[in-house]
């Protein structure tokens, strides 16, 4: 599928959402309030305790904003198509995608692009702007490059996690429980990974590499030492995202093949 054709799908999706402007704006407001409340809680906690695992409030704010920003971008692409996949398999609407001469993955993502993450973007953008201005970061071309690459690569990691969960729907039903677990699990990466035990660190690094979307690159930016894994692995961030996304795409495509073989 060409990028132009992909954006044609996304454009139609945006126009479709704009048909219900009131509901759309209310949704944005609700999401915005939820996240703002969460930020307030962390700020209050830090106000009392000064630091979490040696990370000060601006540094935590950087972690938090990276987490929300990458999630918002990644989820805008894959959240709706993947959560709706189970229903599409059950109702047979997936078949309308399979009779088209385009890649089913990109067709679905274009058709169901979600603009509801706009409030996440605004909020995370504001917090991040403040954080990078306040946190003790040594701004060099390398650190600027790493930050930009982290946003792009981290978004791919987040999109890939949702894609892998969606793949579950081809085989078993009840994928929503996994989406709920993921919603909770992704909160881990809003805090310094060192405060968790060894197992969460291994999981978030080697199994579901979400720590590459936030903690590892942020640790390099603020010159923090490594924990279980050495600090330099943060430089792998630009590679981890595309590779993990590719793995997720291949897995999803194999799920489609299986669906075609087994017939749901």
């Amino acid at each position: 599928m060409t990028p132009a054709l992909f954006w044609h799908h996304v454009r139609l999706r945006l126009r479709e959402r704009m048909e219900y402007r009131g509901a759309f704006l209310l949704g944005l407001l609700a999401q915005g309030i939820g996240y703002a409340a969460e930020i307030a809680v962390i700020w209050l906690l830090l106000h009392r305790f000064e630091a979490i695992a040696g990370w000060m409030w601006p540094e935590i704010a950087l972690l938090y904003s990276l987490s929300v920003l990458t999630y918002a971008i990644g989820a805008a692409f894959t959240y709706s198509p993947m959560t709706e996949l189970e229903q599409m398999v059950q109702r047979g609407t997936l078949e309308t995608v399979l009779v088209k001469p385009t890649d089913p993955f990109w067709t679905l993502i274009g058709q169901r692009f979600n603009v509801g993450y706009l409030s996440h973007l605004l909020l995370a953008g504001t917090v991040m702007t403040w954080a990078i201005a306040t946190a003790p970061i040594d701004w060099t071309p390398a650190s600027v490059g790493l930050l930009v690459a982290t946003v792009a690569s981290g978004s791919m990691i987040q999109a890939a996690v949702l894609t892998l969960i969606g793949t579950w729907a081809f085989r078993f039903t009840r994928s929503w429980t996994l989406f709920a677990i993921n919603g909770q699990a992704s909160r881990f990466i809003r805090f310094p990974i060192g405060i968790f035990g060894i197992i969460p660190q291994i999981l978030l690094t080697l199994v579901i590499p979400l720590a590459f979307a936030t903690y590892y690159p942020a640790a390099i930016l603020i010159s923090e030492d490594g924990q279980l894994f050495p600090g330099w692995i943060g430089w792998l961030t630009p590679v981890v995202g595309p590779v993990f996304m590719w793995v997720a795409y291949r897995t999803w495509t194999r799920g489609i093949d299986r669906y075609q073989g087994a017939g749901g």
Binding site: L12, E16, Y20, R91, G92, P101
Partner: peptide
């Protein structure tokens, strides 16, 4: 199972079909 975009004028689905 509809293949048209539910909330958009029919012609939009046709135009997309042309590109697909």
């Amino acid at each position: 199972r509809s293949q048209l975009w539910w909330d958009l004028p029919v012609i939009e689905s046709f135009e997309l079909h042309r590109h697909v």
